[in-house]
């Protein structure tokens, strides 16, 4: 079973040279720590920055310079600032190559729910609906089950949807799964995790074909 940092490490293998990438809040943010050396990846922060750098050194925080998670950050050589309309313009126009975001539920059809729990949580969707409606390549990073132990990979989402039929791949602490026309397809299992455990914790339709390799992280 992977911890959050290892999930991020596995996600980093999805990055390709030259990609513009939007990382959501939570586990996705950690992916920035594992960008392979020599790979030119530009991080987009939807509050208006391309070329997001690491956190500032202590004492060098700049309140005018934050990411979409409202964390203090830095720029890097080649960074560019822009306004919110342009930021979502480039997202809508499909300029962002890869979007990694968290979710509360993902369905076997690639639907995603991550913004609202009726009667409980009313924080809002932020930029998630715009991202999932337009991005070409969407990967969800999340835990396989919720704190109650119930599967988050479902036949259909129960919570209000963020987007429909948009998720391509899911990476959890147990597995890497593609979303195909026929449901979740198991690609890799985490070290020490059995296929049986993944089957038991996946409520949606799961395709298991042949030997499932252990993840390399």
């Amino acid at each position: 079973m992977l911890n959050k940092n290892q999930i991020a490490q596995r996600l980093a293998k999805e990055l390709k040279d030259g990609y513009y990438v939007n990382l959501g809040i939570g586990i996705p943010t950690l992916v920035a720590n594992y960008i392979p050396e020599g790979l030119n990846v530009v991080l987009q922060s939807e509050n208006g920055l391309l070329g997001m750098g690491p956190f500032p050194f202590e004492g060098e925080e700049d309140p005018d310079l934050i990411n979409a998670g409202k964390q203090t950050i830095t720029t890097i050589p080649g960074s560019a600032f822009f306004d919110s309309a342009m930021s979502f313009g480039m997202i809508r126009a499909g300029k962002v190559d890869l979007t990694i975001l968290g979710a509360m539920e993902v369905s076997e059809k690639g639907d995603i729910a991550n913004w609202k729990i009726p009667g409980k949580m009313v924080k809002g969707m932020g930029g998630a609906m715009d991202l999932v409606a337009s991005a070409k390549n969407i990967i969800v990073a999340m835990m396989h089950t919720n704190p109650k132990g119930e599967s988050k990979l479902l036949p259909t989402c129960i919570l209000p949807l963020t987007g429909v039929g948009c998720v391509r791949k899911v990476v959890t602490e147990l597995a890497v799964l593609d979303i195909t026309e026929d449901g979740f397809k198991l690609l890799e299992r985490a070290p020490g995790v059995t296929v049986e455990e993944i089957i038991a914790k996946t409520a949606g339709k799961l395709i298991v074909e042949g030997e499932i390799p252990e993840m390399l992280i």
Binding site: F55, F57, P63, I66, K70, T72
Partner: peptide, 12 residues
Amino acid sequence: EKRIEQRTVRKL
């Protein structure tokens, strides 16, 4: 005041 919501830093 320019209050910072999430002060995140790295150590030197």
